[in-house]
Amino acid sequence: MIVEHALLVGISKSFGLFYLIALSVAVVIYAMWPSNKKRFDDAAQSIFRDEAGPWR
């Protein structure tokens, strides 16, 4: 199959555009989803939890 310039342009300008927009929306929803808040706050604190070494 010969991939032509026009085909690549077509894909970039249609699918390429929409999948990136969809992805951006998905990421913002994931990050802002209210019930995820506790998990994220916990993660931010996790580095301070003092444990003396590896668990195994």
Binding site: L23, S24, V27, A31, K37, F40, A44, I47, F48
Partner: peptide, 13 residues
């Protein structure tokens, strides 16, 4: 802790 963990995720992606 980091000011906004959510912002760090959005920034990452």
């Amino acid at each position: 802790p980091i000011f906004s963990y959510r912002m760090s995720i959005i920034s990452f992606w």
